[in-house]
């Protein structure tokens, strides 16, 4: 139980120049298992009991414990950049957004959960733009601030996670999230046979637990084994970059670039910056023009949950 709550915090020390392909062959679930075994793991979910929690902010304690605990290397600071000029809502593919679909298939996200959701937003001049919206991974996260039991928490790597084994289902985090990025298990979501025996992990919320909140987990476990998150992998236009602000490097699977320069050169912005949430997800303005989309081509294919369609009698709900 204790080991399972531990997270892998890989130092980026030797990863800059060398690819991490050593782990590339290991499947995600295998990796989860061995990280579950506790190898080189550093506790991130605060395990402090109430009294010791009284001594201070649990989050900062966890952070200092983590950084000091392994003085060897630096922590990753995961981040995402989404180039909206390359997002056409998969209009050109004639399919629902591939990012959403890959995320649903990869995490067995149940209907109506779209951990990364492609919103179509009106822009000036009568056109629209598509905005793929994962959890914004706020650094001043309103959800983390209000959680009464620390079930949702920020990792030192900057990822906001939910521990569904701790969540009491009060849903104040959903009220607090200004991006509508949290999903509640109103009933027992269907569990596909292949997810039945997966060991639960905060970084890979499978299988779903009734009465708890779920959301995009930012896939740092995949990044640690040298893989892009499902959404970034699946994007046909390579519009989604995943990166490490510590090393100032990001990739969309096709190119590698320097985050700071990329952001500055392209008028990057964040959603609802005025709220002071400090997201880790950046956007480059656009409406799919780089991939030939006209802003006046409205609409996209509705999201599907292909794996649920294969399960007979699956009980789902709407948003």
């Amino acid at each position: 139980m204790l080991n399972r709550r531990k997270l892998q915090a890989t130092p980026s020390g030797d990863a800059g120049g060398k690819p991490e392909e050593k782990k590339g062959g290991v499947s995600r679930r295998d990796f989860l298992k061995w990280s579950g075994a506790g190898a080189a793991a550093v506790a991130v979910v605060p395990q402090f009991r109430f009294v010791s929690r009284l001594l201070g902010n649990g989050r900062s304690e966890a952070e200092s414990a983590n950084t000091n605990g392994n003085g060897k290397g630096r922590l990753r600071r995961w981040s995402m950049i989404i180039d909206l000029s390359r997002c056409d809502g998969c209009q050109s593919q004639g399919t629902p957004p591939k990012c959403t679909e890959a995320c649903i298939e990869g995490h067995y996200a149940s209907e109506p959960m779209e951990w990364i959701q492609v919103y179509e937003k009106e822009i000036h001049g009568g056109g629209t733009q598509f905005i793929p919206t994962p959890c914004q991974q706020c650094q001043n996260a309103p959800c983390v601030n209000v959680c009464p039991v620390g079930a949702t928490f920020s990792t030192p790597e900057g990822v906001v996670l939910i521990d569904q084994e701790r969540c009491i289902g009060c849903r104040i985090c959903m009220a607090a999230c200004p991006y509508d990025r949290r999903f509640f298990n109103w009933g027992q979501a269907p569990i596909p046979p292949q997810a039945q025996f997966v060991e639960y992990h905060v970084e890979h919320q499978v299988p779903a637990k009734k009465g708890t909140v779920m959301k995009c987990d930012f896939c740092p476990d995949m990044a640690r084994v040298g893989k892009l998150p499902y959404c970034a992998q699946a994007c046909p236009n390579s519009a989604i970059y995943y990166g490490d602000l510590e090393e100032d490097i990001a990739t969309n699977g096709a190119e590698v670039l320097k985050i700071s320069k990329f952001l500055s050169d392209n008028q990057a912005y964040q959603q609802k910056e005025d709220l002071g949430t400090h997201p880790r997800v950046y956007y480059l303005p656009g409406h799919g023009e780089a991939v030939g989309r006209s802003p006046y081509t409205h609409g996209r294919k509705p999201t599907r949950w292909p794996w649920i369609e294969k399960i007979k009698g699956a009980k789902t709900w709407s948003r």
Binding site: R49, R53, V146, C147, P148, V149, G150, A151, R166
Partner: peptide, 13 residues
């Protein structure tokens, strides 16, 4: 969990 893991920063607490 409210007693075991309670966070004093939360309005619920």
């Amino acid at each position: 969990h409210m007693f075991i893991f309670g966070r004093w920063q939360s309005p619920i607490l």
